[in-house]
């Protein structure tokens, strides 16, 4: 299933909710969590990360990975947390609305 535009950003923010991660770990987390239903083109992840950083939603720093490699870690800023909360709320509103439409009965003839 293709990703709806803009969802990738929220998913990245969500992945960072529990602490700093590097890019590869973010991509693994998304893949695992969605049980491979949503295919995120891995190449698209990095532009998104850099966009979020430019917007000030995440910050980045070089660190050392679990197997002692140099890797760049991303971490939410306070602004990023607010954006995640906001994004979650609007996504739920959106999903509920679409869900209601799809479960609705036949329109009444007027």
């Amino acid at each position: 299933m293709e990703l709806v535009q803009g969802t990738l950003d929220v998913m990245i923010l969500k992945a960072l909710q529990w602490g700093p991660l590097h890019g590869y770990a973010i991509s693994r987390w998304i893949k695992r969590t969605t049980e491979d239903v949503l295919t995120v083109e891995e190449g698209a992840l990095y532009p998104a990360l850099h966009r979020l950083r430019r917007k000030g939603l995440v910050e980045s720093d070089w660190g050392v990975s679990e197997n002692n490699r140099r890797a760049k870690f991303y971490q939410l800023t306070p602004k990023g947390r607010r954006a995640l909360a906001e994004g979650t709320r609007s996504w739920e509103t959106y999903a509920r609305a679409v869900g209601r439409v799809l479960k609705a009965d036949a329109p009444e003839e007027g």
């Binding site: 891995e42 990095y46 532009p47």
Partner: peptide
């Protein structure tokens, strides 16, 4: 799996 690498580099550069 990663896809077009050069393009990712370029787009990320542009985004940042």
């Amino acid at each position: 799996e990663f896809g077009d690498r050069d393009r990712a580099v370029r787009r990320a550069r542009r985004e940042s």
